[in-house]
Design a protein around this nucleic acid. Sequence first.
DNA 1: CTCCCGCCTCCCGTTGCGTGAGGGTCAAGC
DNA 2: GCTTGACCCTCACGCAACGGGAGGCGGGAG
Lengths: 252, 252
Amino acid sequence: MAYTVGQVARAARVTVRTLHHYDEIGLLSPSGRTAAGYRRYDDADLERLQLIRAYRELGFPLEEIAEILDDPGGDPLPHLRRQHELLTGRIGKLRDMVAAIELAMEARKLDIQLTPEERFEVFGDFDPDEHAEEAERRWGGSEAYRQSTERVGRYSKEDWLRNKAENEEWGRRITALMASGAPADSPEAMALAEEHRQLISRWFYDCSYEIHTGLADMYLADPRFTAYFEKIRPGLAAYLNEAIHANAISRA
Amino acid sequence: MAYTVGQVARAARVTVRTLHHYDEIGLLSPSGRTAAGYRRYDDADLERLQLIRAYRELGFPLEEIAEILDDPGGDPLPHLRRQHELLTGRIGKLRDMVAAIELAMEARKLDIQLTPEERFEVFGDFDPDEHAEEAERRWGGSEAYRQSTERVGRYSKEDWLRNKAENEEWGRRITALMASGAPADSPEAMALAEEHRQLISRWFYDCSYEIHTGLADMYLADPRFTAYFEKIRPGLAAYLNEAIHANAISRA
DNA sequence: CTCCCGCCTCCCGTTGCGTGAGGGTCAAGC
DNA sequence: GCTTGACCCTCACGCAACGGGAGGCGGGAG
């Protein structure tokens, strides 16, 4: 079967101009022309176009698609497998984004439940939005996320205050330990790191050692988190980071 | 907290150039500048950037994003909801594509199982690849798809021959009916349309009346399908289309 | 005080088409 | 056989969304 540009364009949901463009750059040249110079596409052309559109959907530049498609002998199976992988990967990414959006909505809901003063009371000067937005970009979605949003959504004001209290208690102890001169890889520091991990697990989500070290690195890498800890005590961010790593290694 | 372009760029996974661009077109202007002219972004800027990136991910042009973001009083909840919807929609689309790819792979596997002669024997001159590719674009994925690929993957050569025989038998009966001059909305024609639907349901996937009429329209709209039926008997494509519609209406 | 990295502002280049302009073609109907 | 409308052709310019480099200032660590 042979098709005109228009037919192909409608079937593949692209514009005629796009097909002209693909022809111009040699990405998809119709297998023939009529006497009047009309482009004639056959089934092989359609198949190729299908692959092109799929790669495009995944964000590949046209040049690269040309390389990919013109590379092997002609077996499409590897392409299909590859696209399958890429697509599922993409879906995962989008799912993470959805989870992130859900969290942000959850945070907004909290803002509505809690008056600004209450909010300040609970979170100190560590803006929850900030936290949410950040966390969201970091581990975007994931299971931990779902858990966190689910639990957080049910917390009452009293829960928040209890959480804050536990948090402050822990903060006092680690600053004291640090002031005492105990090294960050001392058993005491590691114990407090472990306690930190369990605090997170209890209040927000199952915090594995891996996630915990990831968090620790973030405390150093991101100025907002660094600022939060540095304000409690200068050097605390680095100290906690080291303690968490030491603790994780010792438990491995 | 205030951030430099570089920090923002790293956090948001965009280039500095992109931020410059957003500043140029007024989509995201930093809340301030230092004495030396350095851009200074604050948390509100980051929040806005997050929304921008999400909309971009969904394919919105920058201009439109600007309109969307600058439109309401400033409540982000509607945006979040909207993005949530759009993202889940997008995921659905990608899932369809994945299913389509899976079907194409399935077809390739069949090509390997069946020699070219066997393939020809089974499918007549109606290339299964062609069918696969087409079907895939039409109802891309969906539940019907999964079913179809799953069943088709298990068919033996004998199954295919039985299928072909049933199909040909049906073909003979509808051509005969058409030759007899019975109108396409006659009870007999509708009965054959219904039989057609059940043939599909038995061999491939649950074919609802809705899907069936969709198929019918495709038989007319697409030259490849039209050709298939026209070759059996001129006018058959249109006749079958009408019969299927009549049948679907009468059962509704 | 220096060195290097990060920031600044032009400014031209690229990708992937959109959108006519100007003109031939083809099937259908009168 | 002629018109008409839909469809095709080839330029050719335009645009969005940055990429990437040139040329130069700023700033903090050693």
